[in-house]
Write a protein that binds this DNA or RNA. Structure first.
Lengths: 223, 223
DNA sequence: GTCATGGAATTTTGATCATATTTCAGTTTC
DNA sequence: GAAACTGAAATATGATCAAAATTCCATGAC
């Protein structure tokens, strides 16, 4: 046995990649909230990383729209206004049903099984009022579907959209708990199992509508 | 007069921002071609910048899909295959007519004048066989339209798409010259001047179709 | 006398660079 | 053909410099 760091250092991933993933998950699942400033030095301390990797991860996230670079070299978690939510909604409606349609033509029974299992865990999280797990499983459901769709470019675009509304969605869920969190996953699973592309796309469109109606509630009081 | 660098150093923009813009334009308008490897050191030498700014610009561009990060820390200009072009086409069809529609409801006479002027320069470039200027003015036309649409998120998404097919489009234009470069800008200008959102969106959809048919020709021979 | 305003000093944070370390790709050797 | 070698390029660190925000005090108006 060597005396070198025997710590289970994740994988052999570069530091900037690890920082990126940590930060992305923090944005997606709630650690950070809208308006919160994100400082390089703070991240260096929090993640115990060097500043170069942190810096690179930050540039990546801002390019994806997950973070907002103010003019004066300050970076904050985006605060969505009505217009932004409308845009996000339009973009999701334009792309996600497309992906769902593709997924319906490629899905295998194994995929359906996995999606069903994710949805079960999601339901459990709702029952327990576990917001964090709900958000993760909900994301996992859509991520799996996108993976099945085999459209890397469209998927990357949609991932970027999720990153943009993640923090706001978290706020809403945190306020209203997991009750009244409707989703169209059940309809979607049935449609997928039948290979019904139209029905799958329709279910996805509804799911997106419901999701964005939720996000809309996070918009600071309109003036 | 001081002996300090009196060079007309662009604006007071941070180095990483300048490197980003230089590189983005190089990708958009042709200096780089599909498959070409992009090295940090090469850029440091070429742009006379430090490696930290170069590194950050690179992360940003890869996040936007303008560059392709292979698993083994190599970065290359993306080579599009049939599937990628199909995806890009679908994404553009989903988003750009949407933006055009919005633009039609907000456009001012001044905007139409500017768009017309851009389109004139574009026609000139075609006549002269000036591929580089053609690409720039064509991009300027769409960029102006997107600016009028006042939808920063959708615009950012579309910008990313243009970055992805820029190098491939350049190759095709380089091969076939500026002849047979159809565009629907004239129709679009008429529709915009009338404030006809439907017609504007339709013209945009056609323009996208024609553009992507062009890009399709850059796909390496399918096996 | 209190409160607001302006601005200078302080301090926090970001930007950049030079350098050390690590890793990969291509080549040579066995 | 596999393993070791070598060189080049990427990764990562920490120090240094610059810019912005904040604090705090002084001045002046009400």
């Amino acid at each position: 046995m060597n005396s070198e760091a025997p710590e289970p250092t994740k994988a052999g991933l570069p530091a900037h990649e690890q920082v990126y993933r940590d930060l992305r998950d923090a944005i997606l699942f709630g650690e950070l909230e809208p308006g919160e400033p994100v400082t390089i030095q703070g991240l260096v301390a929090r993640l115990e990383a060097g500043m170069t990797p942190v810096r690179e991860a930050l540039r990546r996230l801002t390019a994806e729209g997950a973070l907002n670079a103010m003019g004066n070299r300050r970076i904050v978690v985006p605060v969505l206004d009505v217009d932004a939510v409308d845009e996000l909604s339009a973009a999701r409606q334009a792309l996600e049903p497309l992906l769902a349609r593709r997924a319906a033509t490629r899905v295998t029974p194994d995929d359906v099984a996995e999606l069903t299992s994710i949805d079960d865990r999601l339901d459990h999280a709702i029952e327990r009022g576990d917001v964090s797990t709900y958000l993760q499983e909900n994301h996992a459901f859509h991520a799996k579907l996108n993976q099945v769709a085999e459209a890397p470019i469209l998927t990357a675009m949609v991932d970027g959209l999720w990153l943009r509304f993640g923090p706001s969605l978290r706020i809403v869920c945190g306020q209203m708990g997991t009750r009244n969190l409707p989703d169209r996953h059940k309809d979607m699973l049935v449609a997928l199992a039948k290979g019904d592309a139209d029905a799958t796309a329709r279910a996805m469109a509804d799911d997106v509508t419901q999701g964005m109606d939720l996000v809309r509630q996070a918009v600071p009081d309109q003036k």
